[in-house]
Design a protein around this nucleic acid. Structure first.
Lengths: 167, 167
DNA sequence: GATATACTGTTAATAGGCTAACAATATGGC
DNA sequence: GCCATATTGTTAGCCTATTAACAGTATATC
């Protein structure tokens, strides 16, 4: 079903380009709604889960600013995410000797335990949902989106890339 | 540049399927950030613009609930969006004789004037950005995403489709 | 060493999403 | 007509985002 039929539009979407953009945003919107209710079953939000996964996958200790870079979000927002997670005892702030401005954020045992439950279930659901596309199609989709995303890396200087992530 | 390199991940993304999903969400996130700052220049938010475009493109008068359906958002949220737009004098609520529960939402002249300024500029920027993909690639992207989105239309009953929209 | 500049995390204001509960109103079945 | 059920819009509470301003700290320059 085309997007135009799907949304009962009274006027045509102007161009192939505009339609592609709307498809990206619209599809992500569906994915995020599903994610939100999935994570809620485990008592965390998608944003909180993303923070914890970033911490889990990081090879080194991360400060709040570094978490913000990887999640493409502001330091202000990281503060409140960490506040929430700390209140739930899933992470802790740890002061750093050589830079008294920053906190290292650590997963607590409770946080690690939660991830052990949530992550496999999450990956399982992703596998099942995305299987509507063939392996080749999934790969193609990634290629197209990666190409598209280059437009937005305006602060991507001299070959180095933005140190950001989203799970 | 692959997503893995782009985000300096310490561990590999598990599968092609998971990677595709992350690419969709991540790309949409960039698009939404750009949109947000674009619309801000004109004194509206992206969500407010979407409401106005829905009203403009609708062939008939729309109630708040109908706007909510097209924007895939809750009635509660529509209430606050309309509150904002009404405060800015871009739309007005109009009572309906035969159903005293509902309001018809109308664009004011100020709202129409705003759209005349914003919409061409918006479409222009979309054309320019999306031109990083060829026409064929844009078309292919739409096809893949439309196929993918079928998973999420769980409430899509008997061939009829969800009456939702996102601009 | 003093000073300007940059960076980190916090706070406040604003916006937009969600769910849940509510009152008012319509509608369907009897 | 009556009553149960459904729908509409509102409200409240929560969470996540944004920007802007701020204090504290590091760093670079002189």
């Amino acid at each position: 079903m085309s997007l135009e039929k799907e949304i009962k539009m009274e006027k045509k979407i102007n161009t192939v380009r505009h339609e592609a953009l709307l498809n990206v945003v619209r599809t992500a919107d569906f994915i995020e709604k599903i994610s939100y209710s999935f994570f809620k079953k485990y008592g965390v939000t998608a944003a909180q889960y993303n923070v914890m996964i970033v911490l889990k996958l990081a090879a080194k200790d991360l400060t709040q600013a570094q978490i913000g870079e990887r999640l493409i979000t502001s330091r202000a927002n990281v503060t409140s995410l960490i506040d929430q997670l700390e209140k739930r005892k899933f992470v802790r702030r740890k002061s750093v000797a050589d830079d008294r401005r920053v906190y290292i954020i650590e997963l607590t045992q409770a946080g690690k335990d939660l991830l052990k439950k949530v992550e496999p279930a999450y990956l399982d659901i992703v596998e099942k949902k995305m299987a509507v596309l063939t392996v080749k199609e999934n790969h193609q989709l990634s290629l197209l989106l990666t190409k598209l995303r280059k437009i937005f890396n305006v602060y991507d200087k001299e070959g180095d890339c933005a140190d950001e992530i989203l799970y």
